[in-house]
Simulated assay, not measured.
Amino acid sequence: MDRRDFIKTLGIAGGAALVGGTVGVPVAAAEVRAEAGPDPLLKDVCDIHIHCLPDTRPRCIDEFTLAGQAKAAGYKCVMFKSNDWSCHDRAYLVRQALPDFEVFGSICMNRVHGDKVNVFAAEQAVKTSGGLCRCIWMPTLSAAYQHQRDKLPGPGIPVLDPQGKVLPEVIRVMEICAEADIIFASGHSSPQESLILAKQAKEIGVKKFVVTHVNSLIWKMTRDQINQAVDLGAFVEYCYLPRLWGPGTGNPQFERQSRREFLNYVKTVPERSFISTDLGQRGNPNPIDGMRQCIRELLAAGIPQKEINLMVRSNPAHLIGLNK
């Protein structure tokens, strides 16, 4: 067994996939699909929100194996996200084994980096070899908003002060993202916090401000809020994960989002939107199978190909820095 096969074997431990194109149907835990090769539906796709091993939470596949599958399927790029650890340094190594494929990483400002948004961690991330950190997320699982809503212990990490103003360390990270021309993402901030961040980002000159998963759980935005964010220069992210979770999946505690609700979101402002899978959790589909199912669903609903291209190709490619 060579090194690639060894790593691949590690990567297929656990997981789930889509069966015959049916959304959310679990399969045997050891079966991780997306090995079929080139797929015209997936040509030049950019998925810039994927969770893989190594991580502190159970995942269905590792970064190296997923990147190889994405390259074989015809993707243009992937970007990995961990709620705890940076991924951009690993992206540098994955690229050595997968030449001619665009792999990127990111960093989240969670508690592993301290009790507040860590400016030094952000500075070092953008200095790391290869320049592959293309997104700095505000706190996610450590966010003050999530701690409040989910009644988690401790206050969480804030992005605003008690008067509702953006904290100085958050402003400095915005400046770092603006200088490096990378994504500043709202993380698990509340919809109202995200709008305040968007206003501040516009004043600073952040060109790639992203409000994350605006169709998910406690971060859902109204149509009016989405339009406000866009008017402030933001891009909005829709995740396909809510269309897949529910009983019998890796996230059984959540109610699956209806097809109608998901489509209502993606139709809002496609010119300033993009779709990520947010997949990689053990018990959920392989992210590539999830993206394939998403595109099929959009096509079946009559979403114009031009708008699909914007949301899964052009806009994420622009944000990641591939479309100059």
Score class of each variant (00 low, 15 high):
N83M: 10
N83C: 12
D84Y: 15
D84C: 08
D84L: 14
S86V: 03
S86G: 06
C87H: 14
H88Q: 15
H88F: 13
H88W: 12
D89C: 06
D89R: 14
A91F: 08
Y92G: 00
Y92T: 11
L93V: 11
L93K: 11
L93A: 06
V94F: 11
V94N: 11
R95S: 04
R95Y: 07
R95P: 03
Q96W: 15
Q96L: 15
Q96G: 11
Q96E: 14
A97S: 08
L98D: 05
L98M: 04
P99M: 06
P99G: 03
D100G: 13
F101D: 02
F101A: 02
F101M: 00
F101W: 07
E102N: 15
V103K: 02
F104M: 12
G105K: 07
G105Y: 14
S106W: 11
S106P: 12
I107P: 04
I107Y: 09
I107H: 08
C108H: 13
M109T: 05
M109L: 14
N110K: 12
V112I: 15
V112H: 15
H113D: 05
H113W: 15
G114Y: 14
G114N: 12
K116N: 07
K116E: 14
K116Q: 12
V117A: 01
V119C: 06
F120N: 04
F120K: 11
F120A: 07
F120E: 13
A122Q: 02
E123R: 11
Q124D: 10
Q124T: 06
A125H: 00
V126L: 00
V126Q: 00
K127P: 00
K127I: 00
T128G: 02
T128K: 08
S129R: 15
S129V: 12
S129D: 09
G131Q: 03
C133H: 06
C133R: 02
C133Q: 01
C133G: 01
R134G: 00
R134V: 00
C135I: 02
W137K: 08
W137T: 05
W137D: 08
M138W: 08
M138P: 03
M138S: 03
T140H: 05
T140W: 12
S142F: 11
A143L: 01
A143I: 01
A143Y: 09
A144I: 09
A144L: 10
Y145D: 01
Y145K: 05
Y145C: 01
H147N: 09
H147W: 13
Q148I: 04
Q148Y: 15
Q148C: 07
R149D: 00
D150M: 10
K151D: 11
K151N: 12
K151V: 05
L152P: 05
L152R: 15
L152W: 12
P155L: 04
P155Y: 01
G156F: 13
I157F: 09
P158T: 04
P158Y: 08
P158H: 10
V159K: 06
V159H: 09
V159A: 01
V159M: 03
V159S: 01
V159I: 10
V159Y: 07
L160G: 05
D161N: 12
P162T: 08
P162Y: 08
Q163P: 00
Q163I: 00
K165N: 14
K165Q: 14
K165F: 11
